[in-house]
Nucleic acid binder design. Structure first.
Length: 328
RNA sequence: GCCGGAGUAGCUCAGGUAGUUAGAGCAUAUGACUGAAAAUCAUAGGGUGGCCAGUGCAAGUCUGGCCUCCGGCA
């Protein structure tokens, strides 16, 4: 189903929150006859609009957007589901002879497409997780060491979420977690093939992802920290106007999104929900969103910095030039 | 002025009966990330313990004085 044609190309626009990805990507898509595939783990949910900074119909200016509003916020969406849908969207765009722009700030989602990482075909097993959750990190780690010593070697021993997932994979398949090797990431473009474990399959992308300078261009929007903090603040104030964001959360809660679920959704959703439950004051809500958003931006940059293929730009002009170069 | 409470990390505070290098959460800095990724997790720096004196082998901890803040009474 997947055509891995040499002439096919993928452009990624990434950057920390509030860096201006949306505006830039629409401008670029119009210029280069492209369509946009969102890579945002919150904008996939229907109804998370203002708080997630989702583009409005008007802002799209006729540029088609994919992977928005594809999930119900009451349920958890996953990287694996994302990978499947996004790969499909990319193919669809290419079949129209248009240029796909993968745009967003969720590094893990972007990587799932760009490197077509293999996500083991094991669905979350909530009953099993509930059982394992009762155990301590130490106990979980010891179990994993026995069942999958390779994965145990480089897992974060103290992160229950990672431990649970790794155990879930071995326990339900009886096989170890496939090892993840991404040569380009470590800066060795010569090694091009990922040692794919045939027992697991990646979901619908080109076999070795979009590796190669002729196929992939990753552009990152660079902003210094002080500037980003200002942008985050400006955006936050705009979202609070007319109680827009507060009302959005109220509405979602009325539609059945639990307070507990809002905690998982994070940032604006977490703190607005806490405010609506009278757990924090209005001012605390604002301060927390601001601070946590800055932290989040930092975490995003930590992730992006690892990928040496990313070319950092300051403005639209630079990225336009880069793309012209890339396409010629 | 009197009575009571309090002064310990940038902030909020823990620290029975005095005993090795004073802790936590948050903040700050840095990092990780294999189906929750705006989530989850890790590491680090940082304190002349309000000030001065006294008792003790030993004081954040006991005693006295002074300074500052909060509450109540006048």
């Amino acid at each position: 189903m997947i055509v891995n044609n040499k002439t096919q190309k993928l452009i990624v626009i990434l950057g920390p929150t509030a860096s201006g990805k949306t505006g830039m990507s629409i401008k670029l898509a119009k210029k280069f006859n492209g369509e946009i595939v969102s890579a945002d783990s919150r904008q996939v949910y229907k109804g998370l609009d203002i708080g997630s900074g989702k583009v409005t119909k008007k802002e799209m200016q006729g540029v088609p957007h994919h992977l928005l509003d594809v999930a119900n916020p009451k349920n958890r969406f996953s990287a694996s589901q994302y990978q499947k849908l996004a790969n499909k969207a990319v193919v669809k765009i290419q079949n129209k002879n248009k240029l796909p722009f993968l745009v967003g700030g969720t590094g893990f989602y972007i990587q799932s497409i760009v490197d077509n990482i293999v996500l083991p075909e094991v669905k979350p097993n909530w009953a099993l997780r509930a059982k394992l959750e009762k155990k301590s990190n130490e106990e979980l780690f010891l179990m994993l060491e026995k069942l999958d010593p390779v994965r145990a070697q480089n897992i974060d021993k103290q992160n229950p979420r990672r431990l649970l997932r790794a155990l879930e994979i071995v326990i339900t398949t009886g096989r170890p977690v496939p090892s993840l090797v991404i040569p380009d990431l470590i800066g060795d473009p010569e090694l091009s093939s990922l040692s794919l474990d045939s027992r697991f399959s990646a979901q619908g992308g080109p076999a070795s992802g979009w590796r190669g300078n002729d196929k992939l261009l990753q552009i990152g929007i660079k902003k210094d920290r002080a500037e980003l903090a200002k942008l985050i603040n400006k955006r936050l104030i705009a979202r609070l106007k007319n109680n827009a964001m507060i009302n959005e959360v109220k509405k979602l809660h009325k539609q059945g999104v639990s307070w507990k679920r809002f905690e998982e959704l994070g940032l604006e959703y977490r703190f607005v929900a806490q405010f609506l439950q009278n757990k924090i004051t209005y001012q605390e809500m604002i301060d927390n969103i601001q601070k946590e958003s800055e932290h989040f931006a930092k975490r995003q940059m930590t992730w992006f910095k690892r990928d040496k293929r990313i070319k950092w730009v300051k403005n639209y002009r630079q990225s336009e030039k880069m793309i012209i170069n890339f396409l010629s």
